[in-house]
Design a binder for these strands. Structure first.
Lengths: 214, 214
DNA sequence: TTGACAGGTATACGGCGTACACCTAGGCTA
DNA sequence: TAGCCTAGGTGTACGCCGTATACCTGTCAA
C-alpha cells in the first residue's frame, strides 16, 4: 500500500495517542510506516503542517450541532462531544495551544458555536463575552494545572505525607476529603467528568441569567 | 561577576521574555552569559529543572493575599495580580502546562487559594469544585485559542475578506461588531482585560450563589 | 605543602527537522 | 513506439538541540 496523506495522518495520530506528542518525530513516524523520513515530505509540507492536520482529524470527530432542542442542551451536548474527542486524543489540546493560529476546521467549529449562542437569543456582545468566558471549555478541555491526587499515593511514606500536610494544609484537607468520599473505589482521584460538567453548567447558567436580565 | 543560580535564572527569564520559550536553548542562554553551555550544568541539573525554576520566579511575583476584605475581592485581587505576572512573562503558562507536576511554589499558591475559599465559608466539596471550575483562571490566564482579530487586518484584501465572511458568517459578524465598537482606537481587538474580568466575575458570582444556597 | 573541591571548559554522541540531489516506474504525448 | 515528464521514494548532509564525560584551574583548609 503506497503512502498517502491519509495514511500519514492516521499513523501520526496513532503514534501521538500511543506515545504522546513529545514522542512524535518525523523519523519515528517514517519508521512506523516503513519508509525513509524524507518520504513524508512528499505528503506534508513540514511538521507544523502535520500537527495542524492532526488537530483537524480530531476536530472532525466532534458531533455536529444537535437540532430540535434549546440552545443550552444543544451546546452542552456538543461541548461534551468535543470533550470525548479530546479525551480520546489527549495530545490535541497541547498541540492546539502551541499553534500560532487556528486551522480552518477549528474556526468552523468556533463559528458554529457562535451561531448556537446567537440562535439562543444572545446579543452579539454577550455572545462575544460568552465565547471568551467559555474559553477552552468550548473544546471540551479545561487545562488542569495539577491533578491533586496524582502525587499522593501508595508510593509515599507517612513521613513525607506529614511534611506535605504541614506545607500545604489546605490541599491536604481537600485531598483527604475527596479520598474519603470514595474510599471503596480503586484508584483515588476526583471524578473529572463531574467536575467538567459542574463548571460547564455554572458557566451556562450564569450566561443564561445574564441574557434574561437584558 | 561569576555565574550563580540567580544569574542563570535571571538571564533565562529575560531570554524567554524576549524570544519566547521556544527560542530558549541552553546554548543560547550560555552565550548570553558569556560562558560555555556546559557551565550552566553546575548550577541547574538540566533544562527541565531550569524551566521549573523559571516558573517559580514568576509565581514569586504574585502578590500575597490581601487581608481585611471579603473573600471575593481578596480572591479577585490576587487572581488579577497573578494575571499581571503572567502577562509580563507570557511564556509561563505554556511552560506550566507542559510540566508533569507542579513545583512547590505553584502548590503553595494553590494551597493559599484553597484557604481563601475556605475562609470565605465554602465547604470542602464546594471549594474542590470551585478550584476545578476556576481552572487556569486561578493563575490569571485562560488560554485563548484564537484571537479573533489577529487574522483580520489591513493586510487582507476585500476578496479574501468576502471569502472568510462566507465560510465563517458568525465569526465575521462578531468581529465586525467588535471593530465598530471602537472604530476610533488604533489596533482593533477586544479588551482582553475586560473579557478576563467578565469571566472571572461570572465564575465568582456563580460560586457565591451556590455557597449561599447551601 | 598538599589535596580536596567548586566551577568553568572541550569534546563528543545521539536525536531532531529538513534542504538538496538523485533515482525510478508509470503514463502521456508526438 | 520513442521520448519525456512527473509523482513519489531514497541517501546524504547540515545545523541545531540536550547533555555525558573527562579535564583543567584557582582557592582554601589541614
Amino acid at each position: 500500500m503506497p503512502l498517502s496523506k491519509e495514511r500519514v495522518l492516521g499513523a501520526a495520530v496513532a503514534l501521538a495517542d500511543a506515545q504522546g506528542v513529545e514522542g512524535l518525530s518525523m523519523r519515528k513516524l517514517a519508521q512506523e510506516l516503513g519508509v525513509v523520513p524524507m518520504a513524508l515530505y512528499k505528503h506534508v509540507a513540514n511538521k507544523d503542517e502535520l500537527l495542524d492536520a492532526m488537530v483537524d482529524v480530531v476536530v472532525g470527530e466532534i458531533d455536529p450541532p444537535a437540532g430540535g432542542t434549546d440552545w443550552k442542551t444543544a451546546m452542552r451536548r456538543r461541548v461534551l462531544s468535543a470533550r470525548g474527542a479530546l479525551l480520546r486524543h489527549p495530545w490535541t489540546s497541547r498541540v492546539m495551544e502551541s499553534r500560532a493560529s487556528p486551522t480552518p476546521a477549528v474556526l468552523a467549529y468556533m463559528d458554529s458555536m457562535i451561531g448556537m449562542f446567537r440562535a439562543g437569543g444572545f446579543s452579539i456582545d454577550l455572545t462575544h463575552h460568552a465565547m471568551h468566558a467559555m474559553g477552552s471549555r468550548l473544546l471540551g478541555f479545561s487545562q488542569e494545572l495539577f491533578d491533586e491526587t496524582a502525587d499522593v499515593g501508595p508510593g509515599m511514606d507517612a513521613e513525607t505525607l506529614r511534611e506535605l500536610a504541614g506545607a500545604f494544609p489546605h490541599i491536604t484537607e481537600l485531598v483527604v476529603a475527596i479520598t474519603h468520599d470514595q474510599a471503596s473505589v480503586v484508584g483515588v482521584g476526583c471524578d473529572d467528568q463531574f467536575e467538567f460538567e459542574f463548571a460547564l453548567d455554572l458557566m451556562l447558567d450564569g450566561l443564561e441569567r445574564l441574557r434574561d436580565r437584558a
